[in-house]
């Protein structure tokens, strides 16, 4: 029962700070570009505004246009519930296994791709095909790099990996651990549509990946899509920071431990988001045909991490 409470708390906390994370990333970028920026709370205002708007749907579009945003949102919320962000506790009926998390991410990916195809516009289909190409390159690397971290622990349950790494500092700075975390960072950037793979603030339809698929959604459909993709960013970034810095998570429902866990998550996420946004200022989007090279590079790192963790234990 206490596990269910902890997981619900984790979902609420992560959902509440997700727009703030996006706001921090936009604000850091704006300040470095010499702008003032729209403020840290702008994503909250955007979502509130979108929820108040009429969800206009194109003639001839199907149920997918209504259902896909909800599927993406629910799959992202499930990932948030499973990934150890605030707590290492997990639901007894659903293991927070690496393979479960990756499959849930894929459900959201496929829903987005179908949404891009549904309205039958050229840019939607193009976005979907690129999205699936990137997903096909990203998922094996996510599996490989977390697998490398799971070998010394002897379990593919994410909570156990985080707990074991937190209990023993020497596990965090092994060559295998470092390689796996670097590989994970690259694929998380690709999966969440950040630079250098996709530009989240582009207006140029020909270069769009994520934006291209959601061009036909309006009002609350768009709000769910935005929130769903932001939650994926929180979940994946949270997983990376908690694997890299596995401290501060709560495993009991003591108020003090929970308070520390929530504060630690906020601090880790916002600092990591700020660093990513600052790094993005120095980066340009790579050409689409170079993206497989980048992702193959991160796959090689993950593969080396697996090899290293077998050899060096």
């Amino acid at each position: 029962m206490i596990d269910v409470f902890l997981v619900i708390l984790q979902v609420l906390v992560a959902t509440a700070i997700t727009p703030l994370l996006v706001g921090v990333m936009r604000q850091v970028r704006a300040r470095m570009e010499g702008r003032v920026g729209a403020g840290l709370l702008q994503p909250y205002r955007d979502v509130r505004k979108l929820l108040a708007k009429e969800p206009l749907r194109a003639d001839g579009s199907s149920i997918v246009l209504i259902a896909a945003p909800l599927v993406l949102l629910v799959s992202s919320l499930m990932v948030i519930a499973l990934v150890p962000l605030v707590t290492t506790a997990y639901l007894p009926s659903i293991p927070n296994d690496l393979f479960v998390v990756v499959s849930l991410l894929l459900i959201g990916t496929v829903a987005l791709a179908l949404l891009g195809l549904d309205a039958g516009t050229a840019f939607g289909g193009m976005g979907s095909s690129r999205h699936m190409m990137i997903a096909a390159l990203v998922e094996p690397t996510v599996l490989m790099s977390v697998y490398a971290l799971s070998i010394p622990v002897g379990s593919s349950t994410l909570s156990r990996i985080v707990l074991a790494r937190g209990a023993d500092v020497t596990r965090v700075v092994t060559p295998a651990g470092l390689l796996a975390v670097v590989a994970l960072v690259v694929v998380v950037l690709a999966e969440t549509g950040r630079l250098p793979v996709d530009n989240p603030s582009t207006h140029l339809e020909l270069t769009m990946i994520h934006e291209g698929m959601v061009l036909e959604s309006a009002g609350r459909d768009l709000a769910w899509l935005e929130l769903g993709s932001w939650l994926r960013l929180t979940a994946l970034l949270g997983l990376v920071v908690n694997l890299a810095l596995p401290w501060g998570l709560a495993d009991t429902a003591q108020p003090l431990a929970l308070l520390i866990a929530v504060a630690a998550l906020c601090a880790k996420l916002l600092v990591a988001g700020g660093l990513i946004a600052a790094a993005e200022v120095f980066m340009a989007k790579v050409r689409l045909f170079r993206v497989p090279e980048l992702l193959a590079g991160s796959f090689v790192l993950a593969f080396l991490a697996v090899t290293a963790s077998y050899l060096a234990g």
Binding site: A30, E33, G34, R35, V36, G37, A38, G39, Q42, R45, K49, K53, L56, T202, H203, L204, E205, M208, E211, L215, E216, S217, A218, L222
Partner: peptide
């Protein structure tokens, strides 16, 4: 960057479906 209307909460978008 100079007039920066984004600071007042306005943003350019690529689709009329997203627009207000």
């Amino acid at each position: 960057g100079v007039y920066d209307v984004e600071r007042y909460g306005a943003r350019l978008v690529a689709s009329p479906r997203h627009a207000d």
